[in-house]
Amino acid sequence: MIMQDPPIVELNGVNKWYGDFHVLKDIGLEVARGEKVVVCGPSGSGKSTMIRCINRLEEHQSGCIVVDGVELGDDLKAIEAIRRRVGMVFQSFNLFPHLTVLENLTLAPIRVAGMTPAEAADTAMALLERVRIPDQAAKYPGQLSGGQQQRVAIARALCLKPKVMLFDEPTSALDPEMVGEVLDVMTALASEGMTMICVTHEMAFARAVADTMVFMDEGRVVEVAKPALFFDHPANERTRRFLGKIIGH
């Protein structure tokens, strides 16, 4: 692929330690506008930590992370700017239980982006349509099923019109019968051209949606490849072993 645009997310030589433990080792990754990247790897490989560094939920100690031309550092303005452009979906939904679904969605647009409540509510309703639960707007998160909650969480992350979406194992906390509805929404989102970085173990989804597969192990990016190549002819021994385990059952 010939890239004319500069990458929208770029990680270069990123290192991170928790005390003595070296979680991220020299991570380098480039994500182009509109690209869908799926990150996989065994638990503890640092994949969640990596994407949490991209919107500064975790601090990296060395290397550089650039999102949409803004470098992430100690500057609060830069952090705010990046967080506005990057939406995030968590494993455990993290909806605000004391607010209704609609309030969850309008909070950031009103408080951060300075929209009027009416405008924010319109945007929010449109997004709820998109994730197919407009009739739940007045309910509280606790009244929804896990799948519905995660769809609300996706809608919430989309509310600030982000340029990049991060998904941190979005289906791992769901009952099996609800995984499909969330993946459907994510697939739809992908087909609309959203830039996505997903940490997930849903390999069927990855094969169908991903432009690029990233395999991480022990804090390193071990292999980056197109899905067809990645699944059928993995180059690295560790990738092969991991895929064998995860697809084997």
Binding site: R56, E80, V86, N94, A108, A157
Partner: peptide
Amino acid sequence: PRGQFEAADALGLGYWRSMRLI
């Protein structure tokens, strides 16, 4: 739960707003 703090951060609410609102 820590996730509440993180979700507020990820939305770019900032310290005082996330404390006051979330």
